[in-house]
């Protein structure tokens, strides 16, 4: 059994059926990409895992335990961290406070994330420690939401389109961060549209389109497969 398993999940928003029989399995310590265009179902997959939009059928298994059906805060406390795509840092809290409110599960690992350690990872945040979330630039907000989720000491990190709307320089910085986070033993599931960003950080990829998984393979294979790229990712 894999570390994190999605078994044939179907997710709806109200009456509209968004995910169709999605199955994914992720091993411990991997960085896996979930690639697809706008509206393909990447965010919904993440929301299904974290429990914000629970799947109606199918199940999510984490370390052998069924987590689908639990409320989001319980799933978070099991060790799954979610970074949403729209950078929702708390606007009225300072950078440091944003981090403090998320601190959790310090005893779950030998080297828990602390405010100081995430500052080491994102030095820019240390400089802006006393600024409010709403005063940060887009790139800084993205760093803060990632750092904030790290404070929950996740074993699996769900990163939803972190590169979106960021300048190229910040994007390559971000790739570096992801690799460092992985070195800390965190498993990363990365949702992206940017194929080449994925290529830099992940080994395996799933391609999702119109709510179902169309392709599964190594990053290398995917890069070489013009048919798949043309069909599901390019215009």
């Amino acid at each position: 059994m894999a570390y994190l398993d999605l078994n044939v999940i179907n997710t709806y928003y109200g009456r509209s059926h968004i995910l169709f029989d999605v199955s994914l399995s992720i091993e411990k310590g991997e960085v896996v990409s979930l690639i697809g265009r706008n509206g393909a179902g990447k965010s919904t997959t993440f929301r299904s895992i974290i429990g914000l939009t629970p799947p109606r059928t199918g199940e999510v298994i984490f370390k052998g335990e069924r987590i689908s059906g639990l409320r989001a805060f319980r799933i978070c406390r099991k060790g799954i961290g979610f970074v949403p795509e729209d950078r929702r840092c708390f606007p009225d809290l300072t950078v440091r406070e944003n981090l403090e409110v998320a601190a959790r599960r310090e005893k779950a690992t030998d080297t828990p994330w602390t405010v100081e350690r995430v500052y080491d990872l994102f030095p820019r945040l240390r400089e802006r420690e006393r600024n409010l979330g709403s005063q940060l630039s887009g790139g800084e907000q993205q760093m803060l939401t990632i750092a904030r989720t790290l404070m929950t000491n996740p074993e699996v990190l769900l990163l939803d389109e972190p590169s979106e709307g960021l300048a190229p320089l910040i994007v390559s910085l971000l790739a570096e961060m992801i690799l460092r986070i992985r070195k800390e033993g965190v498993t990363v599931l990365l949702a992206e549209q940017n194929l080449h960003f994925c290529a830099k950080v992940s080994d395996r990829a799933f391609v999702i389109d119109k709510g179902s998984v169309k392709y599964e393979g190594t990053m290398k294979e995917l890069l070489a497969d013009d048919g798949i790229k043309e069909k599901y990712l390019a215009v």
Partner: peptide, 19 residues
Amino acid sequence: KIVRATSSDREMADALGIN
């Protein structure tokens, strides 16, 4: 701080493990 965070974004607070 959690109270202030929650009043601006409940869903995010939920996903960060706040009951």
